[in-house]
């Protein structure tokens, strides 16, 4: 139990997938101009990453490894993620129209979100068990969403204050803010590996 707790803290804060591992920076820049879109994207990513992470783990262990074709990992994983995103989109559209209206527009963007693909590969690289995969995928995605929401909050304030120099407006100030955020997350270093 303690192991899982440490793993969650490590994945959410200390090795945050956006700020420390550099994955999923495109949405960090792209969809953090408003709180609402950050929440929508975050929720969609948590859902898809957890599904994709476990699906990729199962395929790796039950198909790729027994057949000795691990080198096809990249091709197979990205196809799993792409079809999973399509599938989730169709299911949501049919069963939960209100949820679809909130998350729908973010789903296609997720296929090329390197965070989903990256965490699926990390699960294999770090030799996780099935439960660890589940926990790690979920925690990484939560860490991603947390940063997204924080960033959206900060950007809304900066926008309202209107004191950002013209040259820094938009992407540059977002990146510098991310750097500062990364520094404060790094302050937690030493709590877990």
């Amino acid at each position: 139990m303690q192991d899982y707790l440490l793993m969650i803290v490590a994945a959410v804060f200390i090795n945050n997938i956006v700020l420390i591992r550099f994955m999923g920076n495109c949405p960090l820049v792209g969809v953090t101009s408003s709180m609402e879109s950050a929440f929508g994207m975050g929720a969609a990513v948590v859902f898809v990453t957890t599904l994709a992470g476990t699906a990729c783990w199962i395929v790796q262990r039950l198909v790729l490894e027994p057949l000795g074709i691990e080198y096809l990992q990249t091709l197979v994983f990205i196809l799993i993620i792409a079809s999973l995103v399509q599938f989730v989109e169709i299911v949501l559209q049919k069963t939960a129209p209100p949820l679809y209206r909130t998350l729908g527009i973010y789903l296609p963007l997720i296929t090329t979100n390197c965070m989903v693909f990256g965490s699926s590969i990390l699960n294999i690289k770090q030799d996780h068990t099935f439960m660890q995969t589940l926990v790690f995928s979920l925690a990484s995605a939560v860490g991603f969403s947390l940063v997204l929401v924080f960033m959206a909050g900060l950007r809304e304030r900066m926008e309202a204050a209107g004191k950002v120099p013209a040259a820094l407006c938009g992407v540059p100030i977002t990146l510098i803010t991310a750097g500062m955020m990364g520094l404060s997350f790094a302050g937690l270093l030493g709590m877990a590996k």
Partner: peptide
């Protein structure tokens, strides 16, 4: 370190903005 990467990249983008303006 990772935070340094973000800051440098942000500053580089800002200077690109200034130059192209």
């Amino acid at each position: 370190r990772p935070p340094g990467a973000f800051v440098i990249f942000g500053l580089l983008l800002a200077s690109m903005n200034v130059i192209s303006r």
